[in-house]
Write a protein that binds this DNA or RNA. Structure first.
Length: 844
DNA sequence: GCAAGGTC
């Protein structure tokens, strides 16, 4: 039997299809897909199935000096046991093995890891094939010319693993132990995350140190024959054109001159035609950046693209490549969109072009093509709105890369008035080119009328604007990822996760990411004692070392020994400053939790956590001062940089995924609740007059008048509002009300529940939210939630969600109890296997 | 409970 090993299941399936001429069948072993035909088996790994770590005796942080990790053994152990077991059992029956992992450094290492596992089971020959994309031609050619594993290249990857582990673990443990931050709140450091964090912190330092300068700009409304346009004052500043006037008196003088002249004379007209080339094919970074201008975070964009990839609609989304492979036939791919409702017209117009020549970016790599549609079209309702928007972006990007350039007519006009110069730059689209199929990049025109030198223009208005220079802007997530790519840190598959990691570690908050005090302290400490780990040089040096290993000019042992020595020197310095560093980190951690002064004792109010795990605001003066304020029960509190003017306390935001909200000043919230009175709106349906519990009922089956609970609108000190029973805590019946907006009880009544309708007036808008009867509203809310929960399932859109509900699955929870075959029979487009996958996922 | 790199 011949065993073929790929890096992932998707690749295994496609290679089996190609090599078997579509006759392969799949089976599941240990939860791993194995494709078979004749004497052949193909199995896909899941990237690395083994990982490096220290031996177990180093596991307990408190029992090990971090510096001991520097010379500790590094061992490789299976991390994906089921895949390893399947690989082993397949290997035992193989008399020939082919490694077909991705064609890049990490792929070589993953292949070598598989090789080592296989060698423990068999002496069968092991070959290596390399192909630059999984297409019939490439794959056939690769299998006809098999090669050998490049152990040097794999060793380069191993060296990286070892260096990253030792530096990351030793420094992470050192900082965490010195600040006594163990458990979930450890303080991490790493070759990629720390330089990325420094980038953010450095930018924040620039912002904080920024000292704005005043300047003035003068704008004028000009017109020729009634056609108005805007022009800007400029002057000659040592040979270059300047618009900003730094001196107020000079600005006012120019403004006065221009205001007093009724006309200006055209002194210069310059026309130029510019081509605006279509963009290059999408690599991961460019894709994330385009998705970010549609409002998607890096993480969200990637997870949608991964879903579309797994479902077969897009190619692999993790790629650096910006050049389509030779075997991509643009005409054929455009043809796949011809009949489509959304894309048909655009595809047809592109096919009408005289020539189709895709654009090329700068990087051509061997593992995966640029991200493009496969030609298989998803059902718009089925994939959901977000996935569709991402899909359309990728389709249109592909369209743009095969479209014609756009051309623009540029018109620059300079006019003089009272010795002062005004300029206007016009821009008109001559040939729409790729903009016709790619609406995401700006194609805005600026109107300037046709004028000739010597023409008189009227000056209709002049405006003097006082401005200030602005600090640099924070990096957005996608800008950060671009920066990482430029610095050569991280990879296509990890950069967006690194940004996410900075959020998880409490190093950055909000979007665009803003560093916490902890982040500033970690970066400062690293800069002082371990500068190497926060610099991009560490990666640059590692890359050079890896190249040397791959080319046989150095060995893994030499490179890791040198790296260990360097880290050892760093620890010599660190040892002496341990307490100092620990205190510094602890202070910064406290600063991130500090709201402001306690109204009772003047010490700091801090976000704290009770023994039960709930958050509240407490005083740093505890136990002498017992002042507290409650916080909402949902989400993780985050102290924002906004401050309440009344109480000098920073506002709190509650992070809870989609349900994240700004709580505001906790003292304002508590005081507002103290001042409000409960407003009774009806009887409690659980214990009210018409539904009293057994013991309290009178002969008529009702509670005695006045004894039953009433429903009232209540304001809690934590900021929540609800319709709840007046007999609380004896009766805990309650219905949620929105956190924001003024609650207004109307005269309209719900006949079913005998309750008034409620409206929410938010801000000054005169179009209130008609919430209606609170009971009806809550029931609808629950039903809506159920549909949304269903849509969270992989491959379920609004249409399928509805069908699932019709089939008795109102909520994902119901899936536990259903018979997959029965439901699959009732719901078109959902297989029993899919349902089993959902069940497995929910169980996990 | 550490990193970064694969992958889901």
């Amino acid at each position: 039997m011949r065993l073929i090993v790929t890096e992932k299941d998707n690749a295994a399936r496609r290679i089996a299809e190609i090599l078997s001429d579509d006759s392969a069948s799949g089976e599941r072993r240990n939860g791993v897909n194995v494709y078979k035909w004749g004497g052949q088996r193909v199995v896909g790994l899941s990237g690395h199935v083994v990982g490096v770590d220290f031996p177990p005796e180093y596991a307990e942080w408190r029992d090990v000096e971090p510096a001991e990790l520097i010379d500790a053994d590094v061992v490789t152990t299976p991390t994906r046991e089921n895949i390893v077991a399947t690989l082993r059992s397949l290997a035992r029956k193989a008399d020939e093995v082919v490694i077909a992992t991705d064609y890049d450094r990490e792929g070589e290492l993953i292949g070598k890891e598989a090789y080592e596992l296989i060698r423990e089971e068999t002496d069968a020959p092991v070959e290596r094939v390399r192909f630059s994309s999984i297409t019939e031609r490439e794959v056939q050619k690769a299998f006809e010319n098999p090669d050998e594993i490049d152990f040097d290249l794999a060793a380069a990857g191993e060296a990286r693993q070892i260096v990253d582990l030792i530096w990351g673990a030793a420094l992470t443990r050192f900082l965490s132990l010195s600040a006594k931050q163990l458990g979930n709140d450890f303080i991490s450091v790493g070759r990629v995350q720390s330089p990325t964090l420094k980038l953010i912190v450095d930018r924040e330092r620039e912002i904080e140190a920024f000292d704005p300068d005043d300047y003035w700009e003068i704008l004028a409304d000009l017109a020729k024959d009634g056609q108005g346009f805007e022009a800007q004052y400029f002057y000659d500043d040592d040979g270059s054109e300047a618009e900003r006037v730094w001196d107020e008196a000079a600005a006012e003088a120019a403004y006065a001159d221009l205001s007093e002249s009724g006309t200006a004379t055209v002194t210069e007209v310059r026309r130029r035609t510019r081509t605006d080339d279509p963009p290059a094919p999408f690599n991961t970074t460019a894709f994330i950046s385009a998705a970010s201008s549609l409002g998607y975070s890096a993480q969200r964009a990637m997870s949608l693209a991964e879903e579309l990839y797994t479902d077969g609609y897009l190619t692999y989304p993790r790629t650096d490549n910006t050049v389509y492979p030779d075997d991509l036939d643009p005409e054929e791919l455009l043809g796949a969109f011809e009949g489509s409702y959304e894309f048909g017209d655009d595809a047809a117009s592109l096919l009408d072009q005289d020539e189709i020549e895709p654009t090329r970016g700068e990087t051509e790599s061997t593992d995966h093509p640029p991200i493009h549609p496969t030609g298989e079209l998803p059902d718009r309702d089925e994939v959901g709105a977000d996935a569709w928007e991402i899909y359309e972006l990728v389709v249109r990007r592909f369209f743009a890369t095969v479209a014609e350039p756009a051309t623009w007519a540029h018109l620059r006009v300079v006019a003089e008035a009272a010795g002062r110069s005004l300029k206007a730059n016009g821009k008109r689209l001559l040939e729409e080119g790729y903009h016709a199929v790619y609406p995401y990049s700006s194609a805005g025109e600026t109107f300037v009328p046709e004028v000739s030198e010597g023409d008189k223009l009227s000056i209709d208005a002049v405006e003097l604007e006082a401005k200030q220079t602005q600090p640099p802007r924070r990096y957005g997530q996608s800008r950060l990822i671009q920066h990482m790519e430029e610095m050569g840190i991280g990879t296509k598959a990890t950069r967006h996760n690194i940004v996410e990691k900075l959020y998880d570690r409490g190093y950055v908050e909000d979007d665009p990411p803003r560093p916490t005090k902890l982040a500033e302290a970690v970066v400062s400490a690293a800069e002082e004692y371990a500068d190497h780990v926060v610099s991009e040089e560490m990666t640059a040096q590692l890359e050079a070392d890896m190249t040397a290993i791959a080319e046989g000019e150095a060995t893994l042992e030499e490179v890791t020994a040198e790296s260990r020595e360097m880290l050892g020197e760093i620890f010599e310095e660190l040892r002496e400053s341990r307490t100092e560093i620990g205190e510094f980190l602890q202070e910064s951690l406290k600063a991130d939790r500090t709201l402001g002064p306690c109204p009772e004792c003047g010490e700091d109010l801090l976000v704290r956590r009770s023994r039960q795990g709930s958050y509240f605001v407490g005083c740093d003066g505890f136990p002498e001062c017992r002042f507290t304020l409650p916080l909402p029960s949902t989400g993780e509190p985050q102290v924002t940089d906004e401050t309440c003017e009344d109480h000098d306390l920073r506002h709190v935001k509650m992070l809870a995924g989609r349900d994240t909200f700004v709580h505001g000043c906790p003292r304002c919230k508590a005081e507002a609740a103290d001042e409000s009175e409960d407003e009774v709106i009806g009887h409690c349906p659980e214990c009210g007059d018409s539904a009293a519990p057994e013991g309290q009922r009178n002969e008529g089956g009702e509670a005695a008048e006045g004894e039953g609970g009433k429903l009232a609108i209540k304001h809690l000190r934590s900021g929540s509002r609800l319709v709840g029973c007046t007999r609380y805590p004896d009766c805990d019946y309650s219905l949620p009300l929105p956190r924001r907006g003024e609650i207004v009880v109307t005269d309209e009544r719900c006949e079913d529940h005998d309750l008034p309708h409620i409206e929410i007036h938010d801000g000054d808008d005169d179009d209130p939210w008609e919430l209606g009867c609170p009971i009806c509203n809550y029931e609808e809310f629950q039903a809506r939630n159920a549909v949304e929960n269903l849509e969270d399932l992989d491959g379920v859109g609004p249409a399928t969600a509805e069908k699932l509900q019709d089939a008795g699955v109102a909520d994902p929870e119901d899936l536990h109890e259903v018979d997959p075959d029965a439901v699959a029979g009732e719901v078109q487009g959902v297989s029993a296997d899919r349902i089993r996958e959902w069940q497995d996922e929910l169980a996990a």
